[in-house]
Amino acid sequence: MKTTLLAASFALVLGSPRAAAAKPLRVVATTPELADIVRRVGGANVSVDGLARGPEDIHQVVMKPSFVTKLNKADAVVYLGLTLEHSFLTGLLDVARNPRLRQDNVRQCAGEGCIDCSEGVKVLEKPASVSRAEGEIHPQGNPHYNLDPDEGPTVARNVAAGLSRVDPAGAADYDKNLKAFLAELEPKLAEWRKRAAALKGVKAVSYHQDTPYLARFTGLQFVATVEPKPGVPPTPTHLERVVALMKAQGVKLIVREQHFDAKTTAWLAEQTGAKVAVIGVMGNALPKTGTYLEFEERNLANLLEAVRP
């Protein structure tokens, strides 16, 4: 009888979701703020590895060999999508030999472990035509939606849905953790919306064409970019045009994404009297912004600081 009971208990333990919990789901997230959301939603059921560290240009993240082994062993990869990570994720998946995460040139990842956070995002700047004459544009639309805090809940829901699909036994946990995360995020969103009112209608220039979502949330009006086209380094002629435009339109704010060189924007500021706000395009780009909330909070705070009279 004792033996039967022991065997039954053993079988129960092995077959239960908690047995899986002893071996957490291995998840790779492409950016630090995504990794934070996965930690929050996945809780104790997941172990998370990040790829980009934060200070990089998201379009130029260096492919490290250790990323390949992480993706090889991963049960899931969480990514922003819309080809934002095309410079590293597709190349890594190509050699990671993980049938759950296959390389896909259009969607970046194909397979049961792919968790694309862009599903359901209200995508801006879908190009009418795709040509490199327009610079390094993304065929599916502007992918920098992580700069709009209003898309945070969508991202978290996508993460929860994806984890539940990969690990149905943990679905109840993911749902519970999602609710807890959203309960923390919603009041912050309300607070950020209120504070962002001070930015509404403020004209600004950004370095790269990655701010339309930030504009959607804050009401900032971006009138030009330091790059003549996305991904094309600035030329003297173009910078002169930007200076003239800024003067003509009374632009008082320059938004520099942390990974771009400070000299050009400092020169622009000197020429126009505008102030420079430094933002991160992903978590950890700026110090102490490793979590999603810290990342969004810091960007908003830096913008508000720059427009303060």
Partner: peptide, 12 residues
Amino acid sequence: VLGHHVHGFRDR
């Protein structure tokens, strides 16, 4: 280089 391109790992 025009058209489709990939950032490969082996030849990085």
